[in-house]
Nucleic acid binder design. Structure first.
Lengths: 334, 334
DNA sequence: TGAAGAAATGTAAGCGCTTTCATTTATACC
DNA sequence: GGTATAAATGAAAGCGCTTACATTTCTTCA
C-alpha cells in the first residue's frame, strides 16, 4: 500500500504538499498539483482513512441508532440517511436500540466510542434528561421522531397530533360515528399524540371516545388482534376502528376476518405510517403517510450542515403527515 | 479526553502496561492491573478507536453492502449481522449497491477505503471474475446468496433449486396439475435456480412447463401483476401460480382480484422468501422460508472466525429452505 | 545462596496522516 | 534593480495508540 510519503518522493515534493492537494484546503500551484496527481495515479495511492482521522480528529463517520434494523419503517429511514451521507463521502455505522433503555444507552456509547463525528438517533426508551445531558457532551446528535424541549433544533419530528387528527377526520368524513381506537403504548409520545389528535377530531364532530371502545396496544400486529378481540367483545357497537399504526391495523384485520366479518363491509380500518406492506394488504390499507425516508434525509442534512459545515443546506424540523385513502374504509350512507 | 498517557501517569506505570491491560494480550500482574483499572475509572478513560486502529492496523469495522437498505429481505439480513457483530464489539458500516454494477463496485471500494477489516457482500450485478479478482486483494470478504466457483468457502447460500422444487412440489401435492410460473429476472442466478427446481418438480410428476404459462418478472410487485395479466390472457387454463418471490406473488394476487377472481378459490398462489409482510397478506401467503437472518448471522460468524480469529465458531455454507404452508394454496379434489 | 530462566514492566520507534510555522520563490510596484 | 508583499512549499511536531525489544524483578532449584 502506497503511503503519502512515497507519493511525495515520486512527485519530488514534501509530504505537506501532497496532503494539500489531497484536501484542497490550501493553494498549490497548478504545476505541482499535476505532478502530485500523476504520482498518486501511478502508485495507485489510496489515503489511509485511519491515519487521516487520527491526525485530523475527524472520522467522517456518522452513527445511526434505530430501534430495529429490520422493519419497513427503519428500513426507509436508514435508506434515506445512507444515500444522503454517502453522496457526501461520509459513512454510516448502524446499531440497534431495541426500544430498551439500557440497550439504547449502550448503543449510543458504542457509537461515541467509535469516534463518530455525529449521531442520528431514533430512541424511545431513554429519558429527556438523558438526552439533555448527552447534548452537553462533545458528540453532536439529531433526534428523529422525538421532540425534546430546549433542544428542538436537534429534533426532526412528525406532527403526530395532526396525523391522529387526519386519520380520524377521514373516517368521520366517510360518515362513521361509532369509532373504536387501538393506540400504541401510551408512554410513547408519538402514540399519545396520535391519540390526542384522534380525540380532537371526535370532539370537533361533537363525539367523545367511549372508554370501552379504546384499547392500548403495543404497536405490533399481535396487539392489534388483541385489541380487536377486546373491542368486538364490548357491548358497544362500532363501524370503524382507527389504529395507532399499520402493524396493529393488520393484526386487527386478521381478527375481524377470524370472527367472520368483512372489511370494510362490516368494519372499516384506518392505519397510520404507510409502511411498505400496507399497500400489499387486502384490502389496501387506508393510512396516514409518515414521510420517514424524507425525514431520514433531513436528519442527514442536519448533520452535514451542523457538523460538516455545509451551510447552504436548509433543515426543516417538523414534517406534516398526509392522509392516504385506500380501500379499507367504507363510505357510509348518511 | 483522557489519554493512555494520563492513565499511565496516574497509575504509575508505563504506556505499554496500560495498553496491555486494555487489550489483555500479555500478562500483567494482578496488582498492576488493578492500579491501572482504577486510574482508568477515575479518569473516565475511553480509548481512542482511531489511534488504536492506526497503530494496530485493525479497524474493528466490517463493511456491509446490500442491494437496498430498505426492504424486508435486507432488513432481516442486516439485523442478524448487526447483532452478531456488535456482540463481539465490531461495528458495521452499511452501503447500498442498488443491483447496479457501477454502484456495487463503487460501494465495495468505498468500504475498502474506509479500512474495513472485512466485507459482507450481497451483490448481484458484479461479475464472478470481478469477485475472484477482489479475492486476491487484501480485504477478505464473504458473499451472501451467491455461489462463486473456487471461492465456495466465502459463500453463504441458500439451496435455491431445492426451494424452487419445494414450492412447486407443495402445489402439486395439493392436486394442482395446471401450474403457471412467474420467475425473477433469469440472469440472476437465484431466479434461475428456483425456476430449475420448479421444473424438476414438474418433471417428477410427469408434467412440463407450458411456455405460455411462464413469465419472466422483475422480483417486484409490479412484475407480478404484469405476469398475472399475461398469464390470464393466455389461452391455457391454470389453477395455480408459483412465484419467484413474495413481492411478485403480492402483485399477482392484486391482479387476480382486479379481474374478479378469488384466491385461492379460483387461483392458488405460492410465494418464495417468507419476507415479513407475507404473513400480513390476505389470504396469508404460502411460501418458502428463506432463512435470511440466520444467513446474516452466519456471514458475521464467518468474519469473526476468518478475520478475527474466533476459531471455535462453525460456519455453514449452504442453507436449506423450508416450505411454509399457509392459506393461499387450495387443496384440489382428485 | 546464587545462577538460570520465567514473568513483569519499561523504552522507544513507528502507524500515515494533518497542520503550524518557517522558509523559499514569485509578483508587483516604484 | 530593489524592496515589500503575496504565494508556494518545506520541516517537523504531533494525533493516541501498539509492539518489538531491552531491562528489571521474581521464581525455582541445585
Amino acid at each position: 500500500m502506497a503511503t503519502i510519503y512515497q507519493v511525495s518522493e515520486l512527485a519530488g515534493v514534501s509530504l505537506a504538499t501532497v496532503s494539500r492537494v489531497m484536501n484542497k484546503n490550501a493553494r498549490v500551484s497548478e504545476k505541482t498539483t499535476k505532478k502530485v496527481e500523476e504520482a498518486m495515479e501511478t502508485l495507485g495511492y489510496r489515503p489511509n482513512s485511519m491515519a487521516r482521522s487520527l491526525a485530523s480528529n475527524r472520522s467522517n463517520s456518522v452513527g445511526l441508532l434505530v430501534s430495529e434494523v429490520h422493519g419497513p419503517f427503519y428500513g426507509a429511514m436508514m435508506s434515506g440517511i445512507e444515500s444522503e451521507l454517502r453522496a457526501s463521502g461520509m459513512h454510516v455505522i448502524i446499531a440497534a436500540g431495541h426500544s430498551e433503555e439500557a440497550t439504547e444507552k449502550d448503543g449510543i456509547e458504542f457509537l461515541i466510542d467509535r469516534s463518530c463525528d455525529a449521531l442520528i438517533l431514533h430512541v424511545e426508551a431513554v429519558s429527556d434528561e438523558y438526552l439533555l445531558e448527552l447534548s452537553r457532551g462533545r458528540t453532536p446528535f439529531v433526534l428523529i421522531n422525538r421532540d425534546v424541549e430546549s433542544i428542538e433544533d436537534n429534533c426532526i419530528c412528525l406532527d403526530n397530533e395532526l396525523g391522529g387528527y387526519l386519520a380520524t377526520r377521514s373516517v368521520l368524513d366517510q360518515g362513521h360515528t361509532h369509532i373504536a381506537y387501538i393506540s400504541g403504548p401510551l408512554w410513547k409520545k408519538d402514540a399519545k399524540e396520535r391519540y390526542l389528535g384522534h380525540q380532537r377530531a371526535l370532539q370537533e364532530s361533537g363525539l367523545t371516545q367511549s372508554s370501552s371502545l379504546s384499547f392500548e396496544g403495543d404497536f405490533q400486529a399481535e396487539g392489534g388482534s388483541q385489541g380487536m378481540r377486546h373491542l368486538l367483545a364490548s357491548p358497544d357497537a362500532f363501524t370503524a376502528v382507527v389504529c395507532g399504526n399499520d402493524e396493529m391495523a393488520s393484526g386487527a384485520m386478521d381478527e375481524v376476518r377470524d370472527q367472520g366479518l368483512a372489511i370494510p363491509g362490516n368494519i372499516s380500518v384506518q392505519g397510520f405510517d404507510n409502511v411498505g406492506f400496507s399497500n400489499y394488504m387486502f384490502p389496501k390499507l387506508s393510512t396516514v403517510d409518515y414521510p420517514v425516508e424524507a425525514m431520514g434525509v433531513m436528519a442527514a442534512r442536519w448533520v452535514l450542515k451542523n457538523v460538516y459545515n455545509k451551510n447552504d443546506l436548509a433543515v426543516k424540523n417538523v414534517f406534516r403527515p398526509k392522509l392516504i385513502a385506500r380501500d379499507s374504509v367504507k363510505k357510509l350512507p348518511r
